[in-house]
Design a protein around this nucleic acid. Structure first.
Lengths: 175, 175
DNA sequence: CTAACTGTAACTATATTGGTTACAGACGAT
DNA sequence: ATCGTCTGTAACCAATATAGTTACAGTTAG
């Protein structure tokens, strides 16, 4: 499955906004944190705005901020806003209806894929943006006596992270 | 997420073999049921053979059959054989390490993605190939007095299937 | 030996995502 | 009023993954 990074980027963007605590962020600033092009961010912000997760303002003092409190936004909300399709797909072309397996495998698979989707949604529904911010442990909060530039000194290596499944990978190379 | 149909096709192929009850199937025959090219099937069968789910034989009377009983093969086995990566990906490029959120969001996301992957795996681990065959309800079994050609008369429309999430779609167009 | 398979390379087609440039429109500041 | 700085969005390109196709070497039963 060629999974996209859209969900990861969306969570990153909204976590930034939760961190910024209602101060509107400019797409350039967000893009710098995500390490991508501002247009990519603006495109995603449009989708998030359509889903009523962020509010954007044009103009010279514009920017985007969360539409709700971080504890009122779940990762499921974000997932549904940016990943329209389920986890798996069915066949590209319909199976042969003249085969007793082919004619029915679609219904069987639909049931399975629904079960999978439900399981994913249940996990994501139980994590809020506030939780995500809370999990940013090694970082200092904006209100502390260390500003973000200082905090950057404490940065840990993002490489060599191991997933539970044992696949070694770099932070950006889950694919 | 641009999900692939590899898992759906793999389940289809192995369900066919479970249905065939240890009789070796030729790639041409399988391809006809899946409605694709035999080489696509053979490629997938190679992967499934590497994962010890099927056994293939070359030669004029060759073909592929299950390596184990259908009740000893779970959908998780199939998933792991053909979908190497997890459900989501992290960022394509590493986030900005000079940003207090960017430097840590990867670890937070890894935890979340692990939870999601585990949930998916748990669902799939609890469904065996035998279950899949059992769920092919409206079909007649090979041993019955209706052969597969006759059974095809009973075929139902594969179109207009609705997923639980309300997205209307055709059987082949979950993407 | 021959026919009928699998295994596999090589190429093409298609789709999705992400990156980039460019520009119209909004809006606060002066 | 106009100017600078934003967002929104179109248009295009690049990269990648999947899938479809042709072709052929190697294997095996008869």
């Amino acid at each position: 499955m060629s999974t996209s990074s859209r969900f990861a980027v969306a969570v990153h963007v909204l976590t930034l906004m939760a961190w910024a605590d209602d101060e509107p962020l400019k797409s350039d600033h967000v893009a710098e944190s995500v390490n991508t092009n501002p247009v990519v961010i603006r495109r995603m912000l449009c989708e998030l705005a359509e889903s009523r997760l962020v509010i954007s303002q044009t103009g010279s003092t514009g920017g985007s901020r969360l539409a709700r409190q971080p504890e009122e936004i779940t990762l499921l909300d974000i997932y549904q806003a940016v990943e329209s399709r389920g986890v798996f797909s069915l066949h590209r072309h319909p199976p042969n209806p003249d085969c007793p397996v082919g004619v029915n495998i679609g219904a069987v698979l639909n049931d399975v894929l629904d079960e999978v989707d439900s399981a994913v949604e249940q996990v994501l529904a139980n994590i809020t943006l506030k939780d995500a911010v809370r999990r940013l442990k090694p970082c200092v909060r904006p209100g502390s006596n260390l500003d973000s530039r200082t905090a950057a000194v404490h940065r840990v290596s993002a490489n060599g992270v191991k997933r539970k499944n044992g696949k070694e990978q770099v932070l950006s190379a889950r694919n």
